[in-house]
Amino acid sequence: MEQPILEVKNLSIRYNGAPADAVRGVSFTLGRERLGIVGESGSGKSTVGRAILRLLPSAKVSADIMRFEGTDLTALSEAQMLKLRGRRMSMILQDPKFSLNPIRRVGHQVAEAYLRHFPVSRAEAKAKTLEMLAAVRIRDPERVHDLYPHEISGGMGQRVMIAMMLLADPDLVIADEPTSALDVTVRLQVLNILDGLVRDRGIGLIMISHDLNLVRNFCDRVLIMYGGRVVETIAARDLDQATHPYTRGLLAAQPRIGGPRAPLAVLDRRPEWTEEFTQ
């Protein structure tokens, strides 16, 4: 069996000064697949993503194993992490409005991600950037390259972000709610682009989302988090057969097109959901 891209065992995270752990005992391995992490706000799903990239300097992160392609992430210095971040693992954030620098042309921002990690000339980096902008299906890369973030739409902004994150050809991409800020028509387009690139390049993808429909359509496997714990792991296509009452509750709470207009099921939160171990 091939070596997993990412291996996490018994990950716990406590924010500085917080009375309880934000994440407790999370374990999973990621191969060349698309893994969804779903949960509600405060479930710890984004915290897990950030801890993997070591973006939580003030939080207390502990794990029995947190290994990325054989490298122990917990033991790396910040200087070593800088070589890894953006090069071999990267993150796509929720809202391009806040993630792009408003006073720099988008092409330069994309190229920076490449120049940072490879000893190439600016001209070479620009050529790579244009190629990548075309790969995220931006029709006129030359023109878009010179635009500022306020001159492009949300959907195009998110495609620029994807281009930036995939340009260095990473092995692991963590997408944290990559399309929550987008309209439904644009959302599908962006997800299809991301999906195509991730498959073509054999990238391991962690898709963090609150949206069950999204992970059902764009992931292979899903972790469901509640109160900082993974309560259930299930193949995305079997999501409807989920057994954990929390997952079932989430599915039932969702209005569906063509569904009955009866009052929606309301989650009856049980204290034991935050206590039990499932693996």
Binding site: E40, H210, A253, P255, L267
Partner: peptide, 13 residues
């Protein structure tokens, strides 16, 4: 969140 949305939609209905 979707579970909270369900409560609010039920309330509005």
């Amino acid at each position: 969140d979707v579970s909270v949305q369900a409560e609010i939609l039920n309330l509005l209905n």
